[in-house]
Design a protein around this nucleic acid. Structure first.
Lengths: 198, 198
DNA sequence: TCGGGATTATGACCGTGGTCATAGTAGCTG
DNA sequence: CAGCTACTATGACCACGGTCATAATCCCGA
């Protein structure tokens, strides 16, 4: 989407995230990333002397920051912010994509975790950090909506867990059913936690 | 666990599932599977003429049936069956493993989905089937516990989504926090759906 | 114009891994 | 024992892909 601009380095990180979420880390080649970014192959070793591991880690970090920033946008888009409304927006990003562009891609952080959690410590840590930079804004938003502070992080984790799992199922089934289901079933629970006043 | 017995063919399928859930599909080699199963390399092309794709698909199918069968055991282990109790058992299987053996492995169905959903149609279908053979028994159990039939499948999907996502986060963080969190936060919702009579 | 750093260009190396070809062995049946 | 089928053994092929080595540009300040 927002691709052509920015330097080649940033484009490669972005492309890496795109390809990883489609094919997984192991099946994504460095040459492929450069080609997808429209960047010269020689730039790979120049910008990423740490090799594939570095590129993957930066792509995961980028994805985490992207997800974290999106939370603010979702909140801004809501007429009146509620936990269920936020969650619905988070899920809707995926249903929209799947209905518009097909089920080609999943979450790059999930892909990195599946492919690298055991083999590459630094990537596992990058994934953990990405989940944290995603959970943080969600939890903060919940607190602002009236959710008791000690439950905000827990509910944010539940939201992201459900979303990630539903993404997996939706991709496997090529059907957004799982995504719409978790939205519907989890919404009341989230709003109830914001207190009786709504 | 139940490994040494059974024929070499079944052992290879089992080993494939083990290795896939640890390293992902792409990073798991055929030779590695044979070695892990203590089976001769020559048996690979004999039992799996369809190559890696066939082996992976059978491993995914095996994992789905395994998960489905476990539901019955969980129910049997509960003094009195409740939705939250079933979910707690499902999650506990993972917390137990992670605490006892470390965070080396995730769900093989999730791994297959991440690595093959876009590239290999048959494996994607195998993953969808695995999720279905897992969701079915869970939904049936919920119905037996008093959950209205039209909500049972939805809640089963929510349970499995949350579990899958929590597995991802737990592996990334190397911490069972996400798993215990989804158990705690989702339990009351599940029991409430079983009707006021509990 | 002349460095000199930043960037790009390319070819080669080398390990990995899925698959194939070809043959060997084992065990049962007639 | 002959023969057939099931299984095992092993080496080779070939594509892919991450990385390295080496050099060519490009571009800006002095």
């Amino acid at each position: 989407m927002t691709a052509a601009e920015h330097g080649p380095r940033e484009r490669m990180v972005f492309s890496a995230a795109q390809l990883i979420r489609r094919d997984g880390v192991a099946s994504t080649g460095m040459r492929e990333v450069a080609a997808h970014a429209g960047a010269p192959r020689g730039s790979l070793q120049h910008y990423f002397p740490g090799g594939k591991e570095q590129l993957v880690n930066e792509a995961v970090g980028w994805a985490g920051r992207y997800a974290g920033k999106r939370v603010a946008r979702f909140l801004a888009a809501l007429p009146e912010p509620t936990p269920s409304g936020l969650f619905a927006e988070m899920v809707r990003q995926w249903t929209d994509e799947y209905e518009a562009a097909g089920f080609a891609g999943g979450c790059p952080v999930a892909a990195a975790t599946v492919d690298c959690a055991e083999s590459t410590a630094s990537t596992r840590e990058a994934a953990a950090a990405a989940f944290a930079t995603w959970t943080g804004p969600v939890a903060r938003a919940l607190t602002d909506m009236g959710v008791p502070e000690e439950r905000s992080t827990a509910l944010a984790t539940l939201m992201i867990s459900s979303l990630e799992g539903a993404i997996l199922i939706a991709r496997a089934e090529q059907d957004t059913r799982a995504l719409t289901t978790v939205t519907r079933e989890l919404g009341p629970l989230l709003d109830a936690a914001a207190g009786p006043a709504g």
